[in-house]
Each structure stands twice: as structure tokens, then as C-alpha cells.
Design a protein around this nucleic acid. Structure first.
Length: 509
RNA sequence: GGCCCGUUAGCUCAAUCGGUAGAGCAGCGGACUCUUAAUCCGCAGGUUGUAGGUUCGAGUCCUACACGGGUCACCA
């Protein structure tokens, strides 16, 4: 920020909204002012630390009491004060760096009466930089015997209760920083998420894939069937859409000869919000030339199996009440077989298209299924999806709901496509990419017909993409994997909001 | 968007049939130099989400609204 953009000078040193302050907030502000009067720098620039709390907790506990006494290990460690136990002229407190807690022992006769008095101006929640020697208490807890400390930052609000933490889910999402301070397992979830993403990058990088970034703002929002967010570019005076998928751009790159590409980035879909859907979500998409969807299945198994090993050291892990096993090979079952198996409808009944539409209409009358494709989607969602716990490739769904996929080799009505279901969630979706420009154009036109009939989620016509195909897309396998759902799976969370740091909420007040 | 549930002190939760809104933690004052949910004594802290209504009297019953959660619809 340059100086001209700065807001007019306000008092920088305190919480906003003076009127609403509680007695505790007033007390904290007063202590802060007394610290400043005592010559303390209220906003220091830098900490010359020797360790973080996590590093100390990871490194030194194996040393015995005697070894610690002999070695006199000097440390200087910053952290947030998370608990205080004061006993006259001595005080124990814990500091935290967000991951690990470290105990500090402050004695008046060690730190000096002046410093000891100064510490009474610190509150739970304040940041402090502690200097001292490591030792072990009578109960064996590794502790810093503090001889000096520095003020780092004031916490002007009282923290939530130490024993129960912060429970209110709304507050947890709106003030995720409080959630992270109070609930250490939350930080762990996002470390798992980060580990997943970096593992995926390594996995594809090692296989010669190139990570690319394609437009988030698109004139034609293609690559999936969903309603987009729209926006406007002023200088060009054009309407644009936030992308619902990167697919068509990634395949343009394969046309250009980038034969292995992947992208991990945000997609935006203007749809409902629930425990599996956030309007912005993160998608991995990857495309490999000369491959078909069978190769993608093998690659997916390898990725997930290795990912499980990297995270847990094994191929099994808990999800809710279940134990998920990612051992290869995953079950593969044809869409129509899964449909009749789980719905209890005999395979022959699916020859009666009208009858199936009526069956689906009875299952979900609000949806008013008009086509066979929509009808079997309903039956799939109601009967099949919730029952699949262990990883299962649902292969060769009907072609009509797959406008960007090749037809299956042995059946022109089926798509060369699979969806990977785990724990009732759709984790991945892949197909042998449609490479025939004339066929692609025809499929777009069919979708355009659907749109005219009022289907807002039909695929828009993208003639520029057809033109790209006319330059020749080699046989290509492509896949999308929902990163948020993967994170839910591996972090054992039932809501997508638990794996998105700042899920979309309605603004308050 | 429909339906169900929730919203009480900074936080976590109580409050019986509609009858003076309580506790623990956190805070403030005091005691205490190995505590760890420290302990002990005392004190303070509330427009019960918002706006109406019923009633002698509403945290409690009714209506509307706000926000959140669940579920259904839509979707990945």
C-alpha cells in the first residue's frame, strides 16, 4: 500500500467500536496502555528467535532432567499465551505457536521484580517472546525457565473458554483465526489438505506433467453443466463468467502439443450450498494425450493409493463410522449394472424408457424428469450413491449426460467415462475426450436445444473450441478430482466447510 | 427456495407449569515461589438474536424478520 492510499489517521492502538466494549476488553486496553507507559514497544518489528514452540517440543523432551541441567540450553521462543497459573511470586504459563504448547516458568527471583510486575499486564491471548533455559519440572514437563521476555502483540478480546474451545460453528467459520487458536485439530485438517495438494503436484510433476493456469474469467462458461456467476469487464465492455471448469482450455493446450497438463485451481458454480457444495471449490483437472479413460482409472488408483500411504502409511483409514480401503484394484462396475443392482430393478426394466421416467418421477416428483438420462440420474442419486462406501469406478454411463466424452467402443449409447465414488461422494469424473470436431459440434447443438427448452444447465455452444478440435486433438484421457472432497475424505470431515478455511456465509449485520 | 432445529454473560452451558435469569471458565481485588482444567476468599459482568403481539406477568406462548445448522430441491 502506498501512503496516498492510507486511510486518515485514526488511533491505531486498539479495538474498533469503542461503544460496544465489555469490561474485559476495557481492562485489556488499559493494560496495553500501561505497557506503553512502561516503555514497551507496542508493535515491535522483529523477533530474534532461536526456536519455535513446536521445534522445542519436537526436539528436547527425550533429554533427561539432569542432561537439561548440565547443558543449560538457551532458547528464545515466541508464542501466544494460552493459559496462566499464577502463584504469588512465581507464575506458570503456556505459550502456543498454533501447533504445540510450551510451558514457561516465570519467577520473580529469576526474571527480577520489575519484569515480574510487567508480566501482570499480559493477558491470555497476548503474544510474547520468552528467553530462558530449558528444564524439566517435578512432573517431567519440558519448560522454559524465563529470565527475560518481550511483548509482541496485544489480544484486545478475551479468548473463548479454555476447556471447551470455540464450539459455535458460525463463529468458527466467520472468525477462523479464533477457531485455529482454540481448536488445534482444525489446523491439522488444513495441514492435511496442504499435504494432499503438494503430494498431487509432486505426483504429476514426476510423471512429466506441466502445471498450467487457464482463464478464470471466460466469455463462454463451458466444461461442465452448471450455472455460472457473471461479471463485467469495463474497459472491454463485455460480460464474462467465472469459470465452472477449466476443461475446454486444458484440451486446447493438448491440441497445441502440451501432451500432459494439469491445473489445480478454483471453480465457481452458482448453485446451492450444502455439506458437499461451496460456490467456489478447488478442482484438479489433468489431461494426458494418447490415453483413454482406462488409463485414467489406473492413474487414479495409483494416485489415491500412494496418497493414502503418504498420509497414513497404509491404504486404510477411518471415515466416520466406516473404514475406507484404497487398496488396488478399486471395484469397477458399469453404470447400468450398478443401477439395477442397487435399485432392485431388473435390467430389462430399463428397456422401457417411459416406465423408467415414470419410476424416477415417483421417486422425486419435484424434479419432473422428462428424459431418460435425467431419470436414471435420479435413480442413481437416490439408490446407488449413498450405498457406495468403498472406492468404486462407475463406468460407461449413458452418453446423453456426457456431451464432452467419446462414446464407448462397444456401445454407441454409452460414454467412455467413469465416476469414482467413495463414501457416498463423487470424488472423480473422467473420460476419453471427444476428439471429433463434427460430433462435438453436433453435441453442442443438442445441448443448445435443451437450453432453448429452458434447461439453464445445458452446455453452451463454444465454436472456438470446435475450431481448436478441427486442428486435431489426439486421443486424450482427461479427469477432474474435487480437492475439497478429497480433503473431506482424508481429514475425516463430513462437511465441506470444515475443509475450506473461509466458506461462503451470508454477511452479518 | 420448502420444512425442521438452534440463537441466554467474552466463551461453554443451565433456567421445571408463563412467576426475582444461574453456574463453570475467562475478568477484577486479595492470599500463595514446581503449577498444569492450579487452589482458597471476595467482587463485578445480561436490552435472553431483532421487531411486534398475547398476558397482571414472557428467556419460556404467538407472528414476522435476521443469522446459523440439518434436510429436501438444484449441483460436483
Amino acid at each position: 500500500m502506498n501512503d496516498q492510499n492510507k486511510p486518515p489517521n485514526k488511533e491505531p492502538s486498539g479495538p474498533q467500536d469503542e461503544l460496544k466494549k465489555t469490561d474485559q476488553e476495557i481492562a485489556r486496553k488499559e493494560k496495553f496502555q500501561r505497557l506503553i507507559l512502561g516503555g514497551v514497544d507496542p508493535f515491535p518489528h522483529k523477533v530474534e528467535k532461536t526456536h519455535t514452540a513446536s521445534e522445542i517440543v519436537a526436539q528436547f523432551p527425550p533429554l533427561t532432567k539432569e542432561e537439561l541441567e548440565a547443558n543449560k540450553i538457551q532458547v528464545r521462543v515466541p508464542g501466544r499465551i494460552v493459559s496462566v497459573r499464577q502463584m504469588g511470586r512465581a507464575t506458570f504459563f503456556h505459550i502456543s505457536d498454533g501447533r504445540a504448547k510450551l510451558q514457561v516458568y516465570l519467577r520473580e527471583d529469576v526474571a527480577g521484580p520489575k519484569a515480574y510486575e510487567l508480566f501482570s499486564l499480559f493477558d491470555i491471548g497476548d503474544w510474547i517472546d520468552v528467553k530462558g533455559v530449558l528444564f524439566k519440572t517435578r512432573t517431567g514437563e519440558l519448560t522454559v525457565l524465563c529470565d527475560a521476555f518481550t511483548f509482541l502483540a496485544k489480544c484486545f478480546h478475551p479468548l473463548p473458554e479454555k476447556w471447551h474451545g470455540l464450539q459455535d460453528v458460525e463463529l468458527r467459520y466467520r472468525r477462523r483465526y479464533l477457531d485455529l487458536i482454540m481448536n488445534p485439530e482444525v489446523g491439522e485438517v488444513f495441514r492435511v489438505r496442504s499435504a494432499i495438494v503438494s503430494f498431487i503436484r509432486r505426483f504429476f510433476d514426476q510423471r512429466g506433467y506441466v502445471e498450467v493456469e487457464t482463464p478464470m474469467m471466460q466469455a463462454i462458461p463451458g466444461g461442465a453443466l452448471a450455472r455460472p456467476f457473471s461479471t463485467h469487464h469495463n474497459a472491454l465492455d463485455i460480460d464474462l463468467y467465472l469459470r465452472i471448469a477449466p476443461e475446454l482450455y486444458l484440451k486446447r493446450l493438448v491440441v497445441g502439443g502440451m501432451d500432459k497438463v494439469y491445473e489445480i485451481n478454483r471453480n465457481f458454480r452458482n448453485e446451492g450450498i450444502d455439506s458437499e457444495h461451496n460456490p467456489e471449490f478447488t478442482m484438479l483437472e489433468f489431461y494426458e494425450a494418447y490415453c483413454d479413460y482406462n488409463d485414467m482409472m489406473n492413474l487414479t488408483e495409483e494416485l489415491l493409493c500412494q496418497l493414502s500411504r503418504a498420509l497414513f502409511g497404509k491404504e486404510e483409514f477411518p471415515y466416520g463410522e466406516q473404514t475406507i480401503s484404497l487398496s488396488r484394484p478399486f471395484r469397477r462396475v458399469k453404470f447400468m449394472e450398478a443401477l439395477s443392482q442397487y435399485s432392485g430393478l431388473a435390467p430389462s426394466r430399463f428397456d422401457d424408457r417411459k416406465g423408467i421416467i415414470e419410476f424416477a418421477a415417483a421417486l422425486a416428483p419435484e424434479k419432473k424428469p422428462s428424459t431418460f438420462g435425467k431419470a436414471i440420474d435420479i435413480i442413481f442419486d437416490k439408490h446407488v450413491k449413498p450405498q457406495i462406501v468403498q472406492p468404486t469406478f462407475i463406468i460407461n454411463p449413458p452418453k446423453e449426460v456426457s456431451p464432452l466424452a467419446k462414446a464407448a467402443k462397444d456401445n454407441p449409447d454409452e460414454a467412455a467415462r467413469f465416476e469414482l465414488m467413495v463414501a457416498g461422494m463423487e470424488i472423480a469424473n473422467a473420460f476419453s475426450e471427444l476428439t471429433d470436431p463434427a460430433e462435438q459440434r453436433k453435441r453442442f447443438e443438442e445441448q443448445a436445444e435443451e437450453r432453448k427448452k429452458g434447461d439453464e444447465e445445458s452446455h453452451p455452444v463454444d465454436m472456438d473450441y470446435v475450431q481448436a478440435l478441427e486442428y486435431g486433438l489426439p486421443p486424450t484421457g482427461g479427469e477432474g478430482i474435487g480437492i475439497d472432497r478429497l480433503a473431506m475424505l482424508f481429514a475425516n470431515r463430513k462437511s465441506i466447510r470444515e475443509v475450506i478455511l473461509f466458506p461462503l456465509l451470508r454477511p452479518k449485520e
